[in-house]
Design a protein around this nucleic acid. Structure first.
Length: 263
DNA sequence: ATCGGTACCTGCACGC
DNA sequence: TGCGTGCAGGTACCGA
């Protein structure tokens, strides 16, 4: 379930429950080797919970040494606090205070890693959408000659966007997913930047409001209340012009757009 | 640099 | 009821 807004919501919801807790024990379901060996997190205390693109970063400290537990949810990963283990529970983090953090992942595309420092691989990712300015985004976008859709999905270009919000942002900016980025006028690229910020902001707000009623913070809230205008609405009328929304494949990803609004 | 295809996994909706 | 097909929000790797 993991694009930037979902990960942000999870981080905000879990943070207050995790910060200050000590990890007493970590067990991984055997013979799962699909996630990294993070049993070394035992004995560390959680000092912070942050988001880095679509990654969840738990900052850890044990006496003088610090470390990070990196969690990427893949397509179906979820963190569950004080929930019931199930057939797809792959990791158990026993915390002090009797709390239990579970990692579930049906498709097992998620990954975990315990590191001293933030790996180069992560530091090399593109800027966070909320940290880049409009001018910077326009310059970066037009400096590339990639189709707009795969460029937005490329985490080395911008970190955090996924298939849903890429489609939604392109729709709001009225840009065809196959448009070559270098050929997009500056004003249009600026509109895309604003559309990205708007879509992500709205989704985070929806996530925040839907999670506020839950005592136990978990990642099972799905798509929030965020209403897609094009994503997975193939054949439905465009909310702007009523033309039928189309689905095409771009860079191996299902891509939804309005053939009349986006050219 | 960029793109398409493949691979990694399980579950679900669909048509027959 | 079963079975095959295609699809699903993630990334990594390959060859062209």
């Amino acid at each position: 379930m993991p694009e930037l807004p979902e990960v942000e919501t999870i981080v905000r919801a879990l943070g207050p429950h995790l910060v200050g807790r000590r990890i007493k024990r970590v067990t991984l379901r055997q013979p799962r080797i699909l996630i990294g060996d993070v049993t070394g997190a035992r004995g560390f205390s959680i000092t912070g919970v942050q988001r880095w693109g679509k990654h969840i970063v738990l900052d850890l400290r044990r006496r003088a040494s610090t470390a990070h537990l990196l969690i990427h949810l893949g397509m179906t990963g979820q963190l569950l606090l004080d929930g019931e283990p199930g057939p797809h529970t792959h990791a158990f983090f026993y915390l002090d205070g009797g709390r239990l953090l579970l990692y579930n992942d049906i498709r097992q595309f998620g990954r975990m890693e315990l590191t001293r420092e933030l790996p180069v691989r992560l530091r090399r990712l593109g800027p966070d959408p909320f940290q880049v300015t409009e001018a910077e985004f326009v310059a970066l976008f037009r400096a590339r000659s990639s189709m707009a859709k795969p460029l937005l999905l490329n985490q080395l270009f911008l970190r955090g966007l996924g298939n849903i919000y890429a489609d939604e942002a392109l729709f709001r900016a009225r840009i065809h997913p196959r448009t070559i980025s270098a050929r997009v006028r500056p004003a249009k690229a600026a509109a895309l930047y604003r559309a990205i910020i708007k879509v992500l902001t709205e989704a985070i707000e929806d996530g925040g409001s839907s999670i506020s009623d839950y005592v136990s913070s978990d990642g099972s809230l799905g798509y929030f209340q965020f209403r897609h205008q094009v994503y997975q609405r193939t054949g439905s009328p465009c909310p702007v012009c009523s033309a039928a929304i189309r689905r095409i494949v771009v860079a191996s990803r299902g891509t939804h757009f309005c053939p009349r609004c986006q050219r």
